[in-house]
Amino acid sequence: MEVTKLEHACQIVTEGSARLVIDPGNFTRPVDVTGVVAVVVTHEHPDHVTPEQIRRILDANPGAVVIGPAGVARALAGAG
């Protein structure tokens, strides 16, 4: 397992060819990775999640899921 720390709160955990992205917020450069199976968001503050980052990751990884508390789901649903 490899853990890569990006700017601010974002981390990418890699195990084999599978990746988990944690807290891709607005203080993090665009996360353009493949092999993402899930995005974990700890809470809905913009420094931990932004709809643009989530959309970019999901577009590149159509089978990936987003995991987080209800506030995150509401924030992302409200952003389309």
Rank of each mutant, 00 (worst) to 15 (best):
P62G: 11
G16L: 07
A79D: 13
H8Y: 15
G63S: 15
T14R: 14
T50D: 06
F27Y: 11
V49N: 06
V13F: 02
E52K: 04
T28S: 05
H8W: 14
I57E: 05
V33A: 07
T28K: 01
H8R: 15
V40R: 00
S17M: 12
V36C: 10
E44A: 15
T28E: 00
P46E: 14
I54T: 03
N61I: 07
E15H: 12
T42F: 02
A75E: 08
H48S: 06
P30G: 07
D47V: 08
I22F: 10
V33C: 06
V37R: 14
L76A: 07
V49M: 06
T14W: 01
V49G: 02
V65I: 15
A64W: 01
A64D: 09
Q11K: 15
P62K: 10
A9H: 15
P46R: 02
E52H: 07
R56H: 11
P51Y: 09
P69T: 00
I67S: 08
T50H: 00
E2H: 11
E44M: 09
A77K: 12
V31E: 01
R56A: 13
P24T: 08
D59M: 11
T28F: 00
A77R: 12
V36L: 01
L6P: 02
T14Q: 14
T34F: 05
P69E: 00
G63M: 08
H43T: 08
E7I: 00
A9N: 12
T14V: 09
A79N: 09
P24D: 09
I67H: 09
V21C: 00
A38W: 06
R74A: 10
R19D: 02
D59F: 08
P62R: 12
I54E: 06
L76E: 03
A9W: 13
V33K: 05
G68C: 07
L20N: 06
T34H: 12
D59N: 12
K5L: 14
G78L: 12
G63N: 12
R29P: 00
P51D: 12
G63F: 08
L6C: 04
